[in-house]
């Protein structure tokens, strides 16, 4: 089964992912305009983009453990997943800026004064160098430093999960499940000492 998936996905191109990913927010926007997202389309759009971004970040984080522990190789999709996640975080931020908060003074006050917004902005800022270097040229150019730089993803995911946990009212399960999966996927990366085996590269 896993072999079959690995063999099939090897033949698949990644470009349709980008197209589909770009169409999705456009479709949501169209729904928001036409009442398809309910009577509070601003929050509907904001939450949908944030939620999808977080799901993609988790998916991107799952790729290495899936390969290591199940032999499922989806590595070729990881760049697309990361770039699309950045694109959705950016859309989430734009909806918040332009449609939700609207006022420039209040936007800045919120970023500085409201911890969950500071945390969310932090995640976005950390994603910028990752998005800019998500291309073959940068991988070649930066060499081993590229891998190091892209470990920032771990911080981005933690901040994103934390952002969700911090913004809800009362005790809610959903954001904790997101943050929990992020922590689990990061924990799977912690190298345990393996005395009997020869050192492997991760």
């Amino acid at each position: 089964m896993i072999d079959w998936i690995n063999k099939t996905t090897r033949k698949l191109p990644t470009w349709p992912l980008y197209i589909g990913a770009a169409l999705y927010p456009a479709w949501l926007f169209w729904l928001a305009l036409n009442g398809g997202l309910g009577i509070d389309p601003v929050k509907g759009l904001e939450h949908a983009m944030g939620e999808k971004a977080l799901q993609l970040l988790i998916l991107g984080l799952a790729i290495t453990p899936l390969r290591k522990h199940l032999g499922l190789n989806l590595l070729k999709f990881r760049r697309a997943i990361g770039v699309v996640a950045f694109f959705y975080v950016f859309a989430h931020l734009l909806v918040w800026l332009v449609l939700d908060v609207q006022l420039l003074g209040q936007i800045w006050a919120d970023i500085v004064k409201r911890p969950y917004i500071t945390v969310g902005m932090g995640a976005f800022v950390l994603m910028l160098p990752l998005a800019v270097t998500s291309n073959n040229w940068s991988v070649r150019r930066l060499g081993p430093r590229w891998r190091k730089l892209h470990k920032l993803t771990y911080a981005v995911c933690l901040l994103g999960g934390l952002h969700f946990v911090m913004l809800v009212k009362g005790f809610q399960l959903e954001p904790l499940l997101y943050l929990g999966s992020i922590i689990l996927l990061l924990a799977l990366r912690i190298k345990r000492p393996k005395p009997s085996r020869v050192r492997q590269s991760a």
Partner: peptide, 22 residues
């Protein structure tokens, strides 16, 4: 008096659509 996590200075009227002004 702000809520610790957001400002209470303005509000979003519900029902005004995607471009409703605060």
């Amino acid at each position: 008096v702000d809520h610790p996590r957001w400002s209470q200075a303005t509000e979003r009227p519900i029902g005004g659509g995607l471009f409703a002004k605060r």
